[in-house]
Amino acid sequence: MSMNVPSVFLIVVIGLLGVGLYALLTVRNLIKVVVALQILVKGAMLAFVLVGRLTGQVNLGQSLALTVIVADTIVAVVGLTLAVQVRRKFGSLDIKDLTTLKR
């Protein structure tokens, strides 16, 4: 049995989105939350490349994915910066400990 390239891509996209979403809902460590977000975005990025190929616009799809990489890296950097600062101030990276505003 042989699979064509797009369907392999599609499975990977769905897999990445599923893993990212599952991780986002279950993990409690702030750094892991940032990683989970990254996995989700990687899924979306791959989807752009895949759709670019399917619609015959490989260049467009890839350039969109590249733009997403740039924007998303900055989000990851800001997220990790906050994580460092949270560790300093709360002494823990567990998001369950972030309760100063809970009421």
Binding site: V78, G79, V86, F90, L98
Partner: peptide
């Protein structure tokens, strides 16, 4: 920091 983390995670999703 807590507000920032909440905001970032929700907006990023």
């Amino acid at each position: 920091l807590e507000a920032g983390v909440k905001y970032l995670v929700q907006s990023a999703v």
